[in-house]
Design a protein around this nucleic acid. Structure first.
Lengths: 336, 336
DNA sequence: TTGTAAGCGTTATCAT
DNA sequence: ATGATAACGCTTACAA
């Protein structure tokens, strides 16, 4: 291995003790004479000394690293959330590392373990398989990305998904649709259950016929959308509108509809949720419900910083639901 | 802070020395009796002991972490490369953390420093502003993602971009295009220069007229494509075909062309490079040149593992150019 | 097969 | 204002 200089080497050259060097490095300069500071800085420069944060962490029990755990880094939704997180964390002096969970139960648990073993200072996670208890067990300050019904301890930040779904449905109903299908992205999260109920209740509450055969469980990506849409379009009585759990699913559906010769929106309307960049690219461009991804990231980062610095009362769960916004584009219209 | 159990606690409960515990943890079980192993494992379980990799790293000078540094995590190109990297690194027992450089000079240097300070075992980087020398100075085994003309020491893995560009151009010329513009994604990499020359040489070599006013420098994202395309469409003599440095730029261009009332490809052909998922979603779907992103990641990971384990001769640069493949979709046709 | 003890590079405590 | 010294939790010769 490389033989890097340590503070001891620096101390030797500067003619001081390593304690003094440490003080300079940590900007704990109050009690060091300007003269000495200069000499130490010079020595550091001269040697090309690099602070060893491993050793520092061992001593201080802090790493200044927070881990961002998301299920699918290929979904353009997350990078925007990440940006909000990073901007805030940068300010606060933390580095953000990503963990790509791949919708994979084992990976999710593995990374929780890795987070413990590497002693990260905080966790931001969009949990799919792990329970709130498992997260809490890490003893690491954590904030949940997304609203998880069963969770009642950890802070959570997400968009107001039920409201988003209701708004989208109300819009489609206003257009005159009665046969509305749901491509329900599912992944064994409790939330997929509640989102299904949320969908069905909408109709029940308005005395509209509930067609639960129009709820199709699909994977949470474009392929899921493709498969689900294929299924819907083979039904003897097809829906006149389709709403998907996210834009990727909707875009997959849109592509299948196109390639099977259906005209969107004339033959069938399609809506997404999220408003990722690609939603504005398809033709017709995708009608959707915009989530303020950057804002979600920023709030989550703030919550976590509060928790890490114990700036907020323990045991009091904070929940933030960022409002969504209907975005009407070309993929929806009144039924034929 | 939390009071986590250490190997000393485990040792006490198991009635052995911490050395023995360490041996069990590191599967250095050859010299420990089955009986003892069982007792230690039990104690670990009982205490919920978690290995402290900080302390371990300090002692061994290895972190088993490799840092992946990319300019823009919102470009769907990188997640697919990352997947190739992760799959290989997982096998080899390394964790991959991402650093998002944001096309930002300072950030790029900062993260190089963070990589040194956190003592990561390896670096995979798509360098934009930093020099090869700066990377080498870290003393950390590193592999470059992308082919950088000036670099002659570090291993590099990328697609054969010049070939990709030539193939795309040849295709457009075969279609009969003579007025071909280039939306050149630029970011002060030397490579943007050489890619420009590569473009111009293509015409020179074939005795075709070279119109260097058709080379427009743009930012490396969709907005760059939008701005560049706007510029091109305001020219008195417009190009009949446009090729972009990557799909994001091309998609931005496509969108602008659409919204300005041009029919693609009838009025103007547009080509991208990369073949990201969104390229197949636009209508017309984007003709492009596919790069095997997963493969790039996998090869890069292999190179890095070789370097980290010193399995390959020092000082011998390895370069791998993954071949590209023309993908013809709907955004290109012969000129009007 | 197991244990003792030194040391990795810091920071924190207590003197001076 | 500066320094000596003891941790932090682990791995690794070396001894037994």
């Amino acid at each position: 291995m490389v033989n890097r200089p340590t503070i001891i080497d620096v101390a030797k050259i500067a003619g001081v003790s390593k304690t003094t060097v440490s003080r300079v490095i940590n900007d704990d300069v109050r009690k060091v004479s300007d003269e000495t500071v200069k000499r130490v800085r010079q020595a550091i420069e001269e040697l090309g000394y690099q602070h060893n944060s491993i050793a520092s962490s061992l001593r201080t029990d802090r790493t200044n690293i927070i881990m961002l755990m998301i299920p699918d880094i290929t979904n353009p939704f997350w990078p925007e959330v990440a940006r909000g997180i990073q901007d805030r964390m940068d300010e606060a002096g933390y580095s953000v590392v990503f963990a790509n969970l791949d919708w994979n139960h084992a990976r999710e648990q593995d990374f929780l373990k890795i987070a413990m073993q590497t002693r990260v200072d905080g966790i931001l996670i969009n949990p799919i398989h792990v329970s709130e208890k498992q997260i809490i067990t890490t003893q690491i300050p954590s904030v949940v990305l997304g609203i998880r019904p069963g969770f009642n301890t950890l802070d959570m930040v997400g968009s107001d998904s039920p409201a988003a779904m209701r708004e989208a449905l109300a819009y489609l109903v206003r257009l005159g649709h009665e046969r509305i299908a749901l491509l329900l992205g599912s992944s064994e999260t409790g939330s997929s259950h509640s989102r299904k109920n949320n969908f069905l209740n909408f109709f029940a509450e308005r005395d509209l016929p509930v067609q639960s055969e129009f709820v199709v469980n699909v994977r949470f990506d474009n392929h899921g959308g493709e498969e689900g849409m294929t299924q819907l379009l083979q039904m003897p009585e097809k829906p006149t509108a389709v709403i998907a759990s996210n834009d990727l699913i909707a875009l997959g559906a849109l592509q299948v509809a196109n390639s099977m010769g259906y005209q969107v929106p004339k033959d069938i309307s399609i809506m997404g949720i999220d408003d990722i960049y690609a939603a504005s690219l398809s033709i017709p461009a995708l009608s959707t419900v915009r989530k303020d991804k950057y804002q979600i990231g920023k709030i989550a980062a703030n919550y976590l910083i509060q928790r890490m610095t114990a700036a907020v009362e323990q045991g009091k769960q904070q929940i933030s639901k960022v409002p969504c916004q209907l975005v009407v584009r070309g993929s929806t219209t009144r039924p034929a």
